[in-house]
Computed example of a mutant assay.
Amino acid sequence: MKHLLLLLFSVFILSCNAEKIETTKSIQSQQYITVLGTAQDGGFPHIGCQKECCANFYKGTASKQKVVSLGLIDKESQKKFLFEATPDISTQLDDLERNHLKTSTIIDGVFLTHAHIGHYAGLIYFGREALGKKNIQVFAMPKMKEYLTQNGPWSQLVDIQNIVFSDLKKDSTLTITPTLKVTPFLVPHRDEFSETVGYKVEGKNKTALFIPDINKWNLWKKNIVEEVKKIDYAFLDATFLKDGEINRPMSEVPHPFIEETVSLFQNEPTEVKNKVIFIHFNHTNPALQPNSKERKALEKLGFRVASEGDRYNL
């Protein structure tokens, strides 16, 4: 009798666990953001880098890190979108197809932030030398559209309609599926060829900010801490950990150091810090590496660090 009771109890526990797993699967959001890349424009390993960080890749002790990109999935509407057209676009689009949502269209739209190489150079693979597909929708601000239209080789994509534009306006919300909205907003950056925007993404239940590039938080008209409090996730510029990280004047490539961002949030509760997801890491930034002490220290403080494959339900 004792053995029978133990057997029944074991079956009960197993069935409860099975039910719990099944319920967890059933409540997974049909809308979510997935991280497709985390590195700054030059990627990791970086061209010309002879430092230990990149040497570790060639030794086989560090993994390649793709250039910063997010995928936006809406399975209810059977649509998927890409934020940034990076030099790694081929494998990033394959990731979306293979691991998230396979449809008859390789992508339903690409949102661009600005005209620095890691954020638009991948568009070239839509051209006749590579994919050669027609009418891929590109969401771009006015100066970004003008730059692509008037300068080769990008202009050829426009001329033969590999890409078609959906015009964006600052602070104007675009409904891209019945329950997904995207709003671009201007941020200060090195705007040599185009303006620079971040994006707010609104899903059924949650919202996110995506600001991979900005000069300094105090140059923005908005308060980043207050903006983060209003949303659920904030993918923020984490190019450099601290001053002196690279062997050239860092004023030439201004970004908010992670140390500066952490300082702005130091007096906020954990639930606010936990909304911050650092992304867009230079190859020299030790927080790019999964097991670094710097990354662990950030996570211990309550912040999050983006990794390829992460999902954030909307």
Rank of each mutant, 00 (worst) to 15 (best):
M144N: 06
G309K: 00
T113S: 15
S292F: 06
I224P: 07
F44N: 05
C54T: 03
L96M: 10
I117T: 12
N223L: 10
P269D: 10
S69K: 12
V164S: 00
N56E: 14
K293R: 03
V201A: 02
K59F: 06
V262H: 03
D310M: 15
E97K: 14
H283G: 12
F210S: 06
F193Q: 09
N247F: 04
P249Q: 02
D237Y: 05
S292C: 10
A55T: 13
K200C: 04
Q150H: 13
K242V: 03
F111R: 11
K204T: 15
G127D: 02
K66L: 10
G127W: 03
V11S: 04
K273H: 12
T149G: 01
S26N: 15
K133P: 03
W154E: 12
P212M: 02
T103W: 08
L93C: 11
H46Y: 04
E22Y: 13
H255M: 03
P153H: 08
I21W: 05
A287W: 01
A85K: 10
T61G: 00
L148H: 08
I246E: 03
L4E: 03
N274T: 01
N285L: 08
A115C: 14
A121P: 00
L5H: 00
N313M: 03
L101M: 09
K102A: 15
S29K: 00
H119Q: 10
Q50D: 10
Q156I: 14
I136E: 05
T91C: 13
I163Q: 02
I47D: 04
Q137S: 09
P178Q: 08
T284F: 01
H46G: 02
F185A: 05
K221M: 11
A130E: 11
S166M: 01
K51S: 12
V272H: 11
K102R: 15
F83R: 12
P45R: 11
E245Q: 12
T91W: 13
N99L: 13
P153D: 05
I160D: 15
E76A: 13
S194L: 11
E299N: 07
C49P: 03
H114I: 01
S251R: 07
D41E: 09
L180E: 03
E195A: 03
L241M: 06
L148N: 04
D167G: 14
K222E: 07
T179E: 00
G152Q: 10
I136W: 01
E192S: 07
L123A: 07
L186N: 12
C49N: 07
L241Q: 04
E97Y: 05
D213P: 01
K102V: 09
S251Q: 09
